[in-house]
Design a protein around this nucleic acid. Structure first.
Lengths: 224, 224
DNA sequence: CACTGTGAATGCATTCACAGCG
DNA sequence: CGCTGTGAATGCATTCACAGTG
C-alpha cells in the first residue's frame, strides 16, 4: 500500500476526498462514483480515479466506491487514522486563535499540545482548553511534548527566529502563516502559506478581465 | 504590456516578487539579479527570469533589474498601483479579524469597506476603523460600496449562502476561507482556500517519511 | 450496463543551456 | 565577464478514451 511517489497536487486533494466522504457517510450514502465525488468537489471524474489509483484499487466496476471503506482507507493513507499528531502553535493572535478554534484538526488527530505567545497580556490565558505559555519556553515545551508539527502565526519579522526554535525543539514539520519565507534544514518539512496572496491574485485577474477602471468607490480616500 | 496568458503559478509568485523588492528598496539596493531574487524567495533564477519575461524585458545584461522600476512595473501588472480595490469581509470571527488587522492589504490598495457578522455581540463593534454591520445587510452594502472582492470567513454550513449574497451584491471575485467549496457563476472568480489542508498534508508526509509510530506523547488522551 | 483502472496523449510549468548584450 | 531573455528539453499533472469487470 506504499507506492513510490505521489503528486503533491494529489495529496492536497486527499483531505478533500476524506471530508466529502464524511459528509456522504453522515447522509448514509453507501456507494459513490468518481463522477459524483468529482462534481461535489469541482474536479473531473478521471482526476478522482487517477488520484485513488496511486494507492491501489478500491472501486467496484459498475457501482463505484464503498463510502465508509474508502474513507477509512484514505484516512490511513493520510496518516490520520487512529493516530495522533502533536502540534504546537506559535503566536496566539487572531490567526492563531482561529486555528486553535477550528475543530477539524482535532477530528483529524491533529492535537494542539502547546501554544506560546510573546505578548504578556495573552500568556496565561486558557483558549480552547489550552493554556498559553511564554514564547521563551517554546524550545523546551516542544521537546517535552514531543511536538511533531509547528505552526507559525507571528509577525513576519520574527518568523525565522521562531522557525529556528521549532527546529531546535525537534519538530519535523512546520507550517508558516507569516508573510515571510522561512527556511529550515532539509530534514524538516516546511510549508509557507500566505493567505494575503490569494487576494492579490484576485486584483490581478480583475484588473485584466475588464481593462477599464472600476467604479471609483466613494471618494478614493487613502489610508484609514 | 499585455500578453495573452500567464501561468497561474506565476501570478502567485508575482506578489512575492513585489514584497521582496519592497524590502530591497528599503535597504537602498539599486539593482538585483534574478539569482539574488530567487535565492531570497526559494525559487531558481531561471524561474524568475521566465516569470518576468511573460510581461516584457525589464533587465539589463550584466547588471540585473533596477529594483524600484521593477517594483513599480510589477505593481502595475498586479493591478495594485495607484488604484484601489473595495473589499467586503463576511464573518468577523478570529480569522476575519486576522484579515482585517493585516496591514499588507491596505498597502496594496485592497481596502476593507464593509464587514458583516451574524453574531449580534459583534455587530456594531469597530475594528480597525471599520464598523461591523449585520449580516442581513450584506447584499445592499456590497452594492452601495461597489465591492469588487468578497472574503468569506464564516462556518462551512453558511458559506454557500454567503457566496450567493455576494454574487447578488455584484462582487466580481470571492476568496473563500471556509472549509467547504463554494460555487458562483463563471463571471465571478472564486478561489477556495483551505488553511487546514496544509496541516493534513504534513501528517501525510510525516507518516511516510518514517514508517514507525511516533513517540506516543504523554498518554494519547483523546478529545480535549 | 455503469463504472473502474490505466496506457497514451495532451497540456502546463520548470529547468537547461546558450546566444547576445552592456 | 556577469547577467538577461528565450528556444528547446524535460518533467509533472490532467484529460482522453477505452478495454475490462461485477
Amino acid at each position: 500500500m506504499i507506492p513510490r511517489h505521489i503528486p503533491d497536487a494529489c495529496v492536497e486533494r486527499l483531505s478533500l476526498y476524506v471530508r466529502e466522504l464524511a459528509h456522504l457517510e453522515e447522509q448514509r450514502v453507501g456507494f459513490v462514483s468518481s463522477r459524483h465525488l468529482a462534481q461535489h468537489l469541482g474536479f473531473t471524474d478521471a482526476q478522482v480515479r487517477r488520484d485513488l489509483s496511486y494507492f491501489g484499487q478500491f472501486g467496484t466496476s459498475g457501482r463505484g466506491y464503498e463510502v465508509s471503506r474508502l474513507r477509512t482507507t484514505l484516512r490511513d493513507i493520510l496518516g490520520i487514522n487512529g493516530r495522533v499528531w502533536n502540534v504546537a502553535l506559535v503566536g496566539v493572535g487572531n490567526l492563531g486563535s482561529a486555528l486553535l478554534a477550528y475543530q477539524g484538526f482535532r477530528q483529524r488527530g491533529l492535537l494542539f499540545r502547546v501554544a506560546v505567545e510573546a505578548n504578556p497580556r495573552i500568556i496565561g490565558r486558557t483558549i480552547e482548553g489550552l493554556t498559553v505559555s511564554p514564547a521563551k519556553q517554546l524550545g523546551a515545551l516542544a521537546r517535552t511534548h514531543h511536538i511533531q508539527i509547528g505552526i507559525i502565526a507571528v509577525p513576519a519579522e520574527v518568523a525565522q527566529r521562531v522557525c529556528d526554535q521549532l527546529v531546535a525543539g525537534g519538530v519535523r514539520a512546520i507550517v508558516n502563516f507569516a508573510p515571510a519565507r522561512v527556511e529550515a534544514p532539509p530534514r524538516v518539512r516546511v510549508r509557507n502559506v500566505d493567505v494575503a496572496i490569494e487576494l492579490e491574485m484576485m486584483a490581478f485577474y480583475l484588473s485584466r478581465s475588464n481593462g477599464a477602471a472600476p467604479p471609483p468607490a466613494q471618494g478614493v480616500e487613502q489610508e484609514r
